[in-house]
């Protein structure tokens, strides 16, 4: 279980990384998914470009309405609050549940998003927050809505010559409430189901995660939430997730109900 030979280059800047991508290299960040895939020889890139030290990839820019997080920031940095949290505790809460500490020390926000494992946490979290993915390519920067970023299991909206540079996360107000329920077999394991809800003034978002594809936004449930009504989760899940067998849909409904219950607990 040793990788086939590959070339390795470390990019000092994002343009340097993009040049390497044009040259056929694939990006390497924390390596917590790519590393095992290289060892199992499931991934056999001829060339890797290490982007995690490229200038700007670990930057944090705060504004009144958002935080822009460099894609190479680690789960642990988010967990530990070394980055100012604009989500009223949601991001550190999610980070703490990712794998185990050794993985969180190296694994990156952007790497997890680009790996696009349906059962991973950040893809659902960012869709639930309405975050924006900031891609960099030859033509410059491009914004992609989080819910449009993941196209399917292990596929995303970036072109071959693009990379994820940052994630822009909307700032939640002091009145905001959130719920995040991850059902998994053991601590840190990939999720069997994720339910997430955010309620912030006129904004409500409800999302089902770990659904074998991109996370499913549930606008009717969100509208019900704003109206103070009980959402009909089962019906909306059946519509949004017809590919899942009924017991699997039921489990997502359980996760969502638990996330919604966290909202009222926070009241």
């Amino acid at each position: 279980m040793k990788p086939a030979a590959f070339d390795y280059a470390r990019a000092a800047t994002i343009p340097e990384a993009l040049a390497a991508l044009r040259d056929g290299a694939r990006p390497l960040a924390g390596g917590q998914s790519l590393g095992p895939m290289l060892n199992l020889r499931l991934a056999r890139p001829g060339k890797l470009v290490d982007i995690k030290r490229a200038e700007g990839m670990r930057a944090v820019a705060l504004s009144a309405t958002s935080a822009r997080l460099g894609a190479a920031l680690t789960h642990a940095e988010i967990e530990d609050g070394r980055i100012e949290d604009v989500t009223r505790g949601l991001l550190p809460h999610v980070a703490r549940g990712i794998a185990y500490r050794a993985v969180r020390n190296r694994g990156t926000l952007g790497g997890s998003l680009c790996h696009a494992d349906p059962a991973a946490d950040w893809v659902t979290t960012m869709a639930g927050l309405g975050a924006t993915m900031i891609a960099r390519g030859p033509a410059g920067e491009r914004a992609i809505a989080a819910e449009a970023f993941m196209l399917g299991a292990f596929t995303h909206a970036l072109a071959e010559d693009e990379m994820l540079a940052a994630v822009e996360i909307p700032r939640l107000s002091p009145a905001a409430r959130w719920g995040y329920a991850k059902i998994n077999r053991k601590t840190g394991e990939f999720a069997m189901a994720i339910g997430m809800a955010v309620l912030d003034g006129p904004l409500a978002r409800v999302v089902a995660g770990a659904v074998e594809g991109p996370p499913a936004l549930l606008p009717r449930a969100a509208a019900a939430l704003l109206a103070g009504e009980t959402p009909d989760l089962d019906a909306e899940l059946a519509e949004r997730l017809p590919h899942l067998p009924p017991p699997e849909r039921k489990l997502r409904a359980v996760a969502l109900r638990r996330a919604l219950a966290m909202l009222s607990e926070a009241r």
Partner: peptide, 13 residues
């Protein structure tokens, strides 16, 4: 064929 699919209990279990 990997420990993603073969679940061993961890300390918290």
């Amino acid at each position: 064929s990997t420990l993603i699919d073969y679940i061993l209990p961890g300390p918290t279990e």
